[in-house]
Structures are given as C-alpha cells and as structure tokens.
Design a protein around this nucleic acid. Structure first.
Lengths: 198, 198
DNA sequence: TGTACATCAGTGAACGCGCGTTCACTGATGTAC
DNA sequence: TGTACATCAGTGAACGCGCGTTCACTGATGTAC
C-alpha cells in the first residue's frame, strides 16, 4: 500500500533517527537491518525503498546524530551568558547521565573505534560533524587568537570523547566517576583562569 | 595427530597473540574465528581445543595486550632518567606510528567502544590493565601526593585514548596530526613545569 | 472534476553467505603395567 | 625398558542461525487525459 510522499519522507527520517539510537546502543556491526527496522516500527523488507545499503543508513544516522548534538550545543551556548556556556557544554558531555545513555549521546563516544575502521565516506561525514563541534567550542574560548582557540578545542573535544569512552569501560563506579570529574576539572579550569585567578 | 603439552601451550599462546592483532585491526565483531585461526596458521576446527568460546579468547587477547603494553612501558620508564620517562611514554602513545599501527597498539584506542559494550568479565579484565598503566604513570608524576598523582594519571591516560581514537577517525591528515600534537603539548607541559619554568 | 493507469511504500518470504559451534576422524603423545 | 591402550591437538565437514540483500505481491497515491 503506497504512502504519500510526505509520509514516506517522515518514515525515512524516523528510520534514521531510531537507527542512530540503535547504532549507539549496540554498535554498527551489532545492529542488524531487521532489528533496525523493527525498532522504527517497520518490517525489514522495506529498508531498500529508503536506502541503497546499510552503509548509507550508517552515514545518514551519524550525520543526523551530529546535527542534533551541534544543534543542542548551539542552543545551550546561546542561552547562557559569558563563557559559562562552554562550561555547561563540557559538564553535560562529561556527566554521568551522558555516560549512562549512549543511545542519545555523542556518536564519537559510542562508536569511535568502529568509525575509525569505517569507510572513507563514513569517516568524512563524521569529520565534518566533529569539526563543527570543535568550531563551536573554539568560538567560546576567549583570550586566545582564533587559530590557537581552534587547536585548543581540537584536543579538548578529543579528550572529552576519551573520558566518556573510558568511563563506560571501567567496572569500578568510583574510578568511572573520577575519570569524568578529573577531566571536567582540567578542561573547565583553564578557561576560567582568565577571569577568576590572580 | 596429537601434539606434546609444550607444543600445545605454544600454539595457544600463538593464537592469543595473533588474535590480539586481528581484533585491534578489524574489531572484535569484525574478526571471525575462522580468520583468527587462519591468521595463526591453523584451521578453525581446532579452536575449541584451546578456548571455551569466542568470548574467552577476547578476554585472553585483551589481557595479553595489556601485559605487553605495560611491560614495554615499564622497560621504557626504567631505561630513562628522571621524569623524561613519562614524556617518552606519552610521546610514543601519541605518535603517528601508534596511530597508523592499531594492530600492535593500545587495545583501548583500537577497541574502546566495543569493549564498553562488552561483557562484565571483558570489561573487568580491561579495567585491571587500564589501572596498571595508570599506576605506572602516576609513579612518574612528581611534586604531587600519590592520590592526586593517580587522579592525574587517570585523566591523562583517558585523554591519550581519546586523542589516538580521534586521530584515526579524522580524514584530514593535518587535523589528525594536530590532535596528537596538541594533546602531547598539554600532557607533557604540566609535568615539566616543576623543573623548567619560573 | 472524473476516470484509467502507472508508480511505489511497505509486507513477508526467500536468497546465498559467513558466523560461532559441534563432531567424527587422524595419529602422535602420554600413561600404565 | 618395552608394549598396549587411552588421550587429545589438530583437521575438515557439517550444524543452525542471523546477516545483508532481493523479489513478487498489495493497494493507496500520483499522473495523464
């Protein structure tokens, strides 16, 4: 039974959204197309009416994940005054909530090592999203020329990805919390220094 | 044709070693038992003469990976004077060589997100190895009480894992190199401060 | 605006393939006397 | 020390299963007149 163009577009979007959650929760290799379509409320036969291959839905899901992460980061930043916005962003990323909800979190923390082994087009799409987040953060770092700020944001975001990944691996809850806490302390202190200390 | 006990033990060890490389290169889900045994020079039928399940060889391979990483780190540290040992360790970890040779590198950088979704016993084994590396690094941080040094090492190593993971994802070679370089700069500077600056 | 036909979103069954696991078989090793 | 038998490391074929992908079919939507 054919659906209207608008309905079909909504279906596609819905599949991509739930695919992003499935991938982040179970991994890319760990998510089958049947399960992916079931999670979206469809049978798996219809998959190829929307995508050319599994690879394509991976690419679309990762792109959408970054768009929503960048979007909510932008909203958080414009909602808060001064350089507190960056601190809020970092604190949220390095929170226990984010650690415990991979499905709705950063795709780099959830799928980093799988993406590293992925195709060029997947890595390309992820690189674009990563650099958008980096630029967003760099804009919030004051007391630094733009080039230096970008370099600073580059390592800050990589550090955040590593911290959440490790906090998810470690079995001791105290060590896990300590990783997040210590990383927060190191990343937030420097940018405060210019206004607080001395 | 039965082999001697010693031969069998050597075979087992050899399978674990090549499994570690295979996992780090192709992922845990991405490595089949047939390929794993073929890489070790055997047919896949003999796998269950040495291991109870795929899960067990994963655990053994990760444990061995950490042992060899911790071992070579210890050798590097004891070979160099003062606190230069820690700098050498960090520089090597954050090198282009390590980035480009996942198979013989740190299992956390190569498999972090897969391990995070792994079984408790796999995560437990990895946590032990992670904390050994952390303690090794903490011992090299001077001008800090042991508890603080351990916390410092905790976030430093997480940061290193994140940097190598991101450097492997990013498609732009300059950005990839910049991630490693900036992370090196931030991690090496503080420990030098106590002897160099002021 | 109404009718006739082509299009295609979604279903459900099927495809070949590689996965983890099992098993009968082999012949050299280990053990018991 | 020598002989007879049990053990078991490694082989190669087979198992059921879930994977990504394909396809015939359906009926509502879109298009042409």
């Amino acid at each position: 039974m054919r659906r209207s163009r608008q309905e079909a577009a909504e279906t596609r979007r819905h599949i991509i959204e739930s695919a992003a959650t499935e991938f982040c929760n179970n991994g890319i290799d760990g998510t089958g197309l049947a399960g992916l379509m079931a999670a979206a409320g469809f049978t798996h036969g219809g998959f190829y009416k929307h995508f050319e291959s599994k690879e394509q839905v991976v690419e679309d899901a990762l792109t959408l994940s970054f768009e929503s992460m960048v979007g909510s980061a932008q909203r958080a930043l414009s909602a808060s005054a001064d350089n507190r916005g960056l601190q809020t962003l970092i604190s949220r990323y390095l929170s226990v909530d984010h650690r415990d909800d991979a499905g709705h979190g950063c795709p780099l923390a959830a799928l980093g090592c799988e993406i590293a082994r992925g195709s060029d087009s997947v890595r390309e799409a992820v690189t674009i999203g990563f650099l958008e987040m980096v630029d967003l953060m760099a804009d919030q770092i004051d007391g630094m020329p733009p080039t230096a700020a970008r370099k600073e944001a580059l390592w800050m975001f990589s550090t955040m990805v590593g911290a959440v990944t490790m906090a998810r691996i470690v079995t001791d809850p105290e060590v896990s919390a300590a990783i997040l806490r210590e990383t927060r302390r190191h990343l937030i202190r420097p940018s405060v220094k210019s206004t607080d200390s001395r």
